[in-house]
Amino acid sequence: GATAVSEWTEYKTADGKTYYYNNRTDESTWEKPQELK
């Protein structure tokens, strides 16, 4: 099967917290998305 390329990108805020942003859905989350686990 084809490997899905994750749409999630990991970013850090100014105070060093990590969050994740999805370019396709324009969604952001503090929790690590399922695709990255």
Results as ranks from 00 to 15, higher is better:
24 R>D: 09
14 A>V: 10
13 T>N: 09
15 D>L: 04
17 K>T: 09
24 R>H: 12
5 V>S: 14
20 Y>G: 00
33 P>H: 01
22 N>T: 00
31 E>V: 09
15 D>W: 04
23 N>G: 07
29 T>P: 01
3 T>V: 12
25 T>H: 02
13 T>H: 05
10 E>D: 02
3 T>Y: 06
10 E>P: 05
20 Y>D: 02
4 A>N: 12
28 S>D: 04
12 K>N: 06
28 S>E: 11
3 T>M: 12
18 T>Y: 09
34 Q>N: 13
33 P>D: 03
8 W>D: 00
36 L>A: 04
24 R>T: 12
33 P>A: 02
12 K>P: 02
2 A>R: 01
5 V>W: 12
14 A>S: 11
19 Y>F: 10
17 K>F: 07
25 T>I: 03
24 R>V: 15
18 T>H: 06
14 A>D: 10
21 Y>G: 02
5 V>L: 13
3 T>Q: 14
25 T>S: 05
31 E>Q: 09
34 Q>P: 13
23 N>E: 14
10 E>T: 09
21 Y>S: 04
29 T>Q: 12
21 Y>P: 04
18 T>M: 05
12 K>D: 03
31 E>I: 10
23 N>I: 10
8 W>H: 01
16 G>N: 04
19 Y>G: 04
10 E>M: 08
4 A>T: 14
33 P>M: 01
11 Y>N: 05
24 R>K: 15
15 D>S: 07
2 A>T: 13
23 N>R: 08
3 T>D: 11
11 Y>E: 08
12 K>H: 11
24 R>N: 11
17 K>W: 05
16 G>S: 01
13 T>R: 03
4 A>S: 13
32 K>H: 05
23 N>D: 11
27 E>G: 03
33 P>K: 01
11 Y>V: 14
36 L>N: 08
28 S>W: 15
18 T>P: 06
34 Q>C: 06
7 E>K: 03
1 G>M: 14
15 D>K: 02
14 A>K: 11
15 D>M: 03
1 G>W: 14
33 P>S: 01
22 N>G: 00
28 S>Y: 15
35 E>P: 07
7 E>G: 09
37 K>H: 14
30 W>S: 09
19 Y>A: 04
24 R>W: 15
21 Y>L: 04
3 T>L: 13
21 Y>T: 05
21 Y>D: 03
37 K>T: 15
4 A>L: 14
17 K>G: 05
33 P>T: 02
